[in-house]
């Protein structure tokens, strides 16, 4: 394969800028440990890329809190058999909080899902998919202050599918 090969149009099965920015930080740290003059530095593949090269798991975001596993399964199985589906839960209430992990049996199915399902609708919301390095226990919980996802803390738009206004914001409103 020629090193310069890239497609004439962007690919939709690459990790998102979010995933890539995580990558950048790590690479930066690593690079500092190395000799800056090492001409072969670029050849070394960061762990992150390695993990995603074989990734069979997808992070799925912007789900409604009310979307069920069955609905997710129905849609995502169109790209291949699903090995595991982990619903994202509110850390405290243990209720769905709008994201999940979908694991396929093959990397190709995960890529296809990026290409064909990411950015389409489920339960009438446009969902987001991103390649993920794999589920680990604990990651199913929201990391926001109140237990859900961080993005639901300060959202100032009303989103009925995701608990109305941001929770922190709603608290402030209540106090007033």
């Amino acid at each position: 394969m020629r090193p310069t090969t890239r497609n004439t149009v962007d690919r939709l099965d690459k990790p998102s800028s979010y995933a890539a920015s995580k990558n950048k930080k790590r690479r930066f740290n690593r690079d500092r440990d190395h000799d800056d003059e090492d001409p072969y530095r670029r050849e070394k593949t960061p762990d992150f890329e390695d993990k995603l090269r074989e990734a069979t798991t997808l992070y799925v975001g912007n789900l409604s809190f009310y979307t069920t596993e069955e609905q997710i399964h129905e849609l995502f199985a169109k790209c291949g058999e699903i090995k595991r589906l982990v619903m994202g839960l509110d850390r405290f209430q243990k209720t769905p909080c709008g994201f999940c992990f979908v694991e396929y049996y093959t990397h190709q199915d995960a890529l296809d899902c990026m290409k064909y399902i990411g950015g389409t609708k489920l339960d009438e919301r446009i969902i987001r998919t991103d390649l993920d390095e794999g589920f680990a226990e604990g990651r199913q919980y929201g990391r926001g202050k109140s237990g859900g996802q961080v993005r639901d803390e300060y959202r100032d738009e009303y989103d009925p599918g995701r608990g109305g206004y941001g929770r922190a914001l709603a608290e402030d409103l209540d106090r007033d």
Partner: peptide, 13 residues
């Protein structure tokens, strides 16, 4: 021969 997916993520092809 490298397929059309010669780029990054699709390379396993």
């Amino acid at each position: 021969e490298a397929g059309p997916d010669g780029n990054g993520a699709g390379a396993a092809l």
